[in-house]
Computed example of a mutant assay.
Amino acid sequence: MSAFNFVLNKAREIYGLKVIVEHLDTKYASHCIPALKCLIINSNCNQDDLPLIAGHELGHYVNGDEPRSSIATFSYTANEEAEADKFGIGLLYEYAENEDLVFDTSQDFSQAFSIPKNRQLQVDELAKNHRNVFYTF
């Protein structure tokens, strides 16, 4: 199973969300609509980014975040964005554990899952709880 499908299955099976994956114009970002229990994932992006994008949007739902404006121009606080990324990264660690994937370093993990460099501290923090994903830590 791919990491993307793993995250989508979590959204559907554990959280009971409707998940819509569509190839939309790039001006439309993926987003969560909590009131409708729905994730909309725009697949018109680098396909390697999709697992973290889906995990991030699921993180907004799980964290109880509410968009601050209309669907077309929704926004969250910087803290909510960071927490949503942290949730998504945690799901990717869970996926790696389930698939018996191992990495030499947390940077290798980040590269494998297209995690941005500005989230490396979150990756490192979560790595402490997922040591079985690494050969060495």
Rank of each mutant, 00 (worst) to 15 (best):
3 A>V: 10
3 A>K: 04
4 F>V: 06
5 N>T: 13
10 K>W: 02
11 A>V: 12
17 L>I: 11
22 E>F: 02
24 L>S: 06
25 D>W: 07
26 T>Q: 10
29 A>E: 13
30 S>F: 02
32 C>R: 00
35 A>G: 01
36 L>W: 00
37 K>W: 01
39 L>G: 10
42 N>G: 06
49 D>I: 04
49 D>F: 05
50 L>F: 10
52 L>W: 14
53 I>Y: 09
53 I>S: 04
54 A>V: 10
55 G>E: 07
56 H>A: 04
57 E>V: 06
58 L>A: 08
60 H>F: 04
61 Y>C: 06
61 Y>M: 05
66 E>N: 15
72 A>I: 05
72 A>R: 06
72 A>D: 04
74 F>T: 02
77 T>H: 09
77 T>R: 08
81 E>Q: 10
82 A>G: 04
83 E>I: 03
83 E>K: 13
84 A>R: 12
85 D>Y: 15
86 K>A: 14
86 K>F: 03
87 F>W: 03
95 Y>M: 05
97 E>S: 12
98 N>W: 04
99 E>P: 03
100 D>C: 08
106 S>K: 07
114 S>C: 13
122 Q>I: 08
123 V>F: 05
124 D>W: 10
125 E>Q: 09
127 A>T: 06
128 K>A: 12
129 N>G: 15
130 H>V: 07
130 H>W: 07
136 T>H: 07
